[in-house]
């Protein structure tokens, strides 16, 4: 169902005239009963757009703010409605699947509406702050009984700073506990702007060596480290998260360097999660016709994880690891 345009139109028709209607948020997922993104039972809002291009990213549909068209081969029943309705003739179906000419595709969404089996999905749902708040409040009772709340994640949620500045105060006013899950590679004033409404920051520290960071994520890490210090000075509770990716972050030197940084510079860190690399994102690259750098990468072993965890926990007792291993 693509109700976003009609919903937005309805909201526009009924909203008070004074409200700035131009600010809407774009999400690629709203995950209820999220148990891995902060304390208690949470709803995680995944906002689109990210300044990083991590090679291992398992949410490639979160990289850009604009919508992404995805095609699911398992759902396709070859009804072919999409082929005839596409005004740009950007679609072709063959034995090897759907070819989307992404240069021609204007993301009009006609194929999404036409497909009976929902094999197409236009990722990028628009929300006003009020609409999103209503969605988040659906699970309020679960937040209350579990010490949970909402987590704004991404992508990089601060990419949509204007929308966040609208929705976060609403969340706080509604009594929701708010966590921000950020990569830190954003202008510091954006962080400062949202801090008054944030109870907890989940902060990614991936690669400590600047050059290696640039190679792995597309950006150097000075700003990331500066922003981490800024949050620590502010006293914001921090949960550091480090994906352990073979060939990129999963080496003892990197973990030791992150551990040193946490111990020396970030006194407000409550825990440090070492997250085993997951290959669950691989099919998404295929659906987006994008290359995936870790196409053939294996999962880490339990032994790998435990060895790296021992390096971490020696300096940072709050370190723990989780995730799937092979």
């Amino acid at each position: 169902m693509d109700s976003s345009s009609t919903a937005a139109a309805t909201a526009a028709a009924s909203a008070p005239l004074l409200r700035n209607l131009s600010v809407t948020g774009t999400t690629f997922n709203i995950q209820q009963f999220s148990t891995e993104d902060g304390p208690g039972i949470r709803t995680t809002v995944f906002l689109k757009g990210c300044p990083l291009r991590c090679a291992w990213c398992h949410n490639p549909e979160g990289m850009r703010v604009a919508p992404d068209l995805m095609w699911y081969d398992v759902r396709c029943i070859a009804a072919r409605e999409c082929l005839s309705i596409c005004p740009e003739q950007a679609l072709a179906l063959s034995q090897s699947g759907m070819q989307i000419d992404r240069a021609r595709c204007t993301l009009c969404g006609k194929c999404v509406r036409a497909c009976p089996s929902a094999a197409f999905e236009l990722i990028g749902k628009q929300w006003t702050a009020e609409e999103l708040l209503d969605e988040l409040l659906k699970d309020q009772v679960f937040y209350e009984t579990s010490g949970g709340g909402v987590t704004f994640s991404g992508g990089e949620p601060l990419t949509q700073i204007d929308f966040l500045s609208e929705v976060l105060p609403l969340c706080k006013a509604a009594g929701l506990q708010v966590a921000l899950d950020t990569c830190g590679a954003v202008a510091s004033d954006r962080l400062r702007r949202v801090l008054p409404w944030i109870d907890l920051v989940l902060y990614d520290l991936k690669v400590m060596d600047a050059a290696a960071s640039k190679a792995a994520t597309g950006v150097s890490n000075e700003l990331i480290l500066d922003n981490a210090r800024l949050l620590a000075e502010h006293g914001t509770p921090l949960w550091i998260r480090t994906p352990l990716v073979p060939g990129y972050t999963a080496n003892a030197d990197n973990i030791r360097a992150i551990a040193d940084f946490i111990r020396n510079c970030l006194p407000s860190v409550q825990r440090w999660d070492l997250l085993a690399y997951t290959n669950l994102g691989r099919p998404k690259y295929h659906r987006l016709d994008r290359p995936y750098a870790l196409e053939d990468a294996a999962l880490l072993t339990r032994g790998d994880m435990e060895a790296l965890w021992r390096v971490a926990v020696e300096l940072v007792p709050q370190a723990q690891w989780s995730g799937a291993t092979c």
Binding site: F33, T35, G40, I41, V141, E144, T145, S146, G147, G148
Partner: peptide, 22 residues
Amino acid sequence: SLLRNPEQRAKLKGLLRAYDKV
């Protein structure tokens, strides 16, 4: 995996408390 450690089990407890309410 939802019940793999005390932290996660506490979430199931929260779910049961909420079930009682709604």
